[in-house]
């Protein structure tokens, strides 16, 4: 059984990464969108007199939230485009492992994008990211996994509706509130060189609850 599970997980993960490496469509669109957002956020909040560095955690997470939403949507669209999703449904695999593989591939893509955004943050917002780099990366990773864990469920839920492209971000964002609050604050504290243990606990809890819920619930979404 464990061999079986590993096969499915790695097959889907490898397929997703290979497809993305070849087309780069999700990565390029999300990354460029994030860069534009960083510029917009600066001009939108400049007049409020907030210090540049103090904005960086919020700006970074806005980028992750919005471009991540675009990315998840795109990733699911490429799955449904040729009816490929139906092939996955019809394969003799456990939905739960399919879900985990999808979360994993989407989270990996987002984390790579975040690592590329960090230098831009240093450049644009004069952020010092070196104070507690380990905690910073931990906060980003935990927040991103929580984001994709919930997002991958919501994207399939809304894919069943007739207004999927509109409904996905709208339904998704309220559910992201706790993740966002925890991730922004954890990142903020990490940037100040502190250890955000409170917030990391919340993020770990969100991850545990939603990864298990997704693992159990995904099979129910894989019916026509």
């Amino acid at each position: 059984m464990s061999d079986n599970v590993f096969h499915v997980f790695s097959a889907v993960l490898r397929k997703d990464l290979r497809r993305e490496l070849r087309s780069r469509e999700i990565f390029i669109s999300s990354f460029l969108f994030s860069v534009i957002l960083l510029v917009i956020i600066f001009y939108a909040s400049k007049t409020s007199g907030v210090q540049l560095e103090a904005m960086s955690s919020g700006a970074l997470w806005l980028c992750i939230l919005f471009s991540g939403t675009i990315g998840l949507n795109r990733s699911h669209q490429s799955e449904t485009a040729n009816g490929c999703y139906r092939a996955l449904i019809l394969a003799p695999v456990e939905g739960g492992w399919l879900y985990l593989a999808k979360v994993c591939s989407n989270a990996l893509l987002l984390i790579v994008m975040e690592l590329l955004l960090l230098p831009l943050l240093v450049l644009f917002y004069h952020t010092d990211i070196s104070k507690n780099l380990g905690m910073l990366v931990t906060s980003l990773a935990l927040g991103t996994i929580a984001f994709t864990a919930v997002g991958n469920l919501v994207v399939v839920i809304t894919a069943n509706t007739r207004m999927k492209d509109v409904l996905f971000p709208v339904v998704q964002l309220p559910l992201m509130v706790p993740t966002l609050i925890a991730a922004v604050n954890a990142t903020e504290l990490a940037l100040q060189g502190k250890t955000p243990s409170n917030w990391l606990q919340v993020l770990v809890a969100v991850n545990v609850v939603f990864l298990s819920a997704g693992f159990l619930l995904y099979d129910f979404l894989l019916e026509e």
Binding site: R19, N82, A87
Partner: peptide, 11 residues
């Protein structure tokens, strides 16, 4: 097997 190919365009 249907009229939808169910295969990935980028592979």
């Amino acid at each position: 097997l249907s009229h939808e190919p169910m295969l990935y365009p980028d592979l």
